[in-house]
Amino acid sequence: MPIAQQPHGHLRSFGRIQARPLKPRQAALFDTLLPSIAVPEGAFDPRALAPEAKEVWLEIGFGGGEHMAGQAARNPQALVIGAEPFVNGVGSALRHVEEQGLKNVRLHHGDVRDIVAGLPDASLDRVFIMFPDPWQKARHHKRRLIQDDFLAELARVMKPGARLRFATDWANYADWALEKILACGAFAWPAERADDWRVPPADHLTTRYEEKKLGDCAPVFLDFVRA
């Protein structure tokens, strides 16, 4: 099987899977903590994972988990589901969950499209896509997460009025995402002035990745509403 091709037929929208060996503590959490907070395989109702939750949020590609954990800590009323294929990122997130004693986080170690495919219609209240792999070269744009078919699936699982935040520090990807998401027809973009996408939203949590400034522009924050 080609390395860029996944079993479900989609081109892989992420790069490396592991950069270095896991630290012993993180490796242990894969065996002790992850099984108890892992998202079930196949179709599932997120409300069954946390019946007391008033909202269900999804973070796509949570990186090291700082943003996801921070949002979960600030919003105990929400069940926060995170998906990340990068082994070291999952290990880092597990550490954050354990250290902060978070009870409202569930994780998927793998492609988020597997989760979205298993979700019921109109089951999510909020979605974060924070600094996804930009695949800068034009020939690699087909590997970007933001594609027509994925947006259609995302719209299916988001409630009317649910919020979607897309953030990137690559200018071309910001333009690409804005065009694709608006063309989808399922999302409204209520921005009225430049500060609405240039200034970090009030509830934004800066991550280590963001601080590295690896992109070609200042971070762009695009907040949409499911129509």
Rank of each mutant, 00 (worst) to 15 (best):
V56W: 09
G101H: 11
M158F: 04
P190E: 09
K180M: 14
W170A: 03
P160V: 05
F166P: 01
L49S: 05
K142R: 14
L107H: 03
W197R: 06
H67Q: 08
D148P: 11
D111C: 08
F128I: 04
P24E: 11
A117D: 09
T207D: 02
K54S: 15
D45S: 07
A167F: 00
F187E: 08
W197S: 07
G110T: 08
L214N: 05
F150N: 09
T207R: 07
W189M: 01
F131S: 08
H96V: 12
A191F: 09
D111S: 12
H96D: 08
L94Q: 11
G61E: 10
R20F: 13
L22Q: 01
A78F: 07
A174R: 04
A171I: 06
D223S: 14
P132A: 12
A152C: 08
Q71P: 00
S92I: 04
D148C: 02
R47H: 14
H96C: 12
A191P: 11
R226H: 01
R95S: 14
D125S: 14
R20V: 10
F44M: 14
D223E: 14
A167H: 00
T207Q: 08
V90I: 15
V225D: 03
Q136W: 13
L205M: 00
L124K: 03
G70C: 05
L94I: 13
R165E: 05
H96Q: 13
M158N: 10
R74G: 06
V157M: 06
Q6W: 02
A78C: 15
K54I: 04
K103I: 11
D45T: 04
A171W: 04
S92M: 12
L124D: 04
I37Y: 02
I37L: 12
A69P: 00
R143F: 00
E55V: 05
R198P: 01
L182S: 02
D195R: 13
F166A: 06
R163Y: 01
F131V: 11
L33K: 04
V105I: 15
S92Y: 03
T32W: 01
A73L: 15
R113H: 07
R126D: 03
I60T: 10
R198L: 15
G215D: 13
A43D: 14
P51K: 07
W197N: 01
I129P: 04
N104V: 05
H8V: 05
P24T: 12
A50R: 10
P40I: 09
D121I: 02
R208Y: 00
R106N: 11
G42N: 08
M1C: 03
A191Y: 05
E210L: 01
G61Q: 10
K137A: 09
E55W: 06
R208N: 10
L49A: 10
Y173I: 13
E52R: 13
A171S: 14
K103N: 07
L214S: 06
H8W: 13
K103A: 14
N75R: 09
A162V: 09
F150C: 11
D45P: 02
K137N: 11
A19S: 14
D203P: 08
I181A: 05
R74D: 13
D125P: 06
G161H: 08
L11P: 02
L49V: 03
S123K: 08
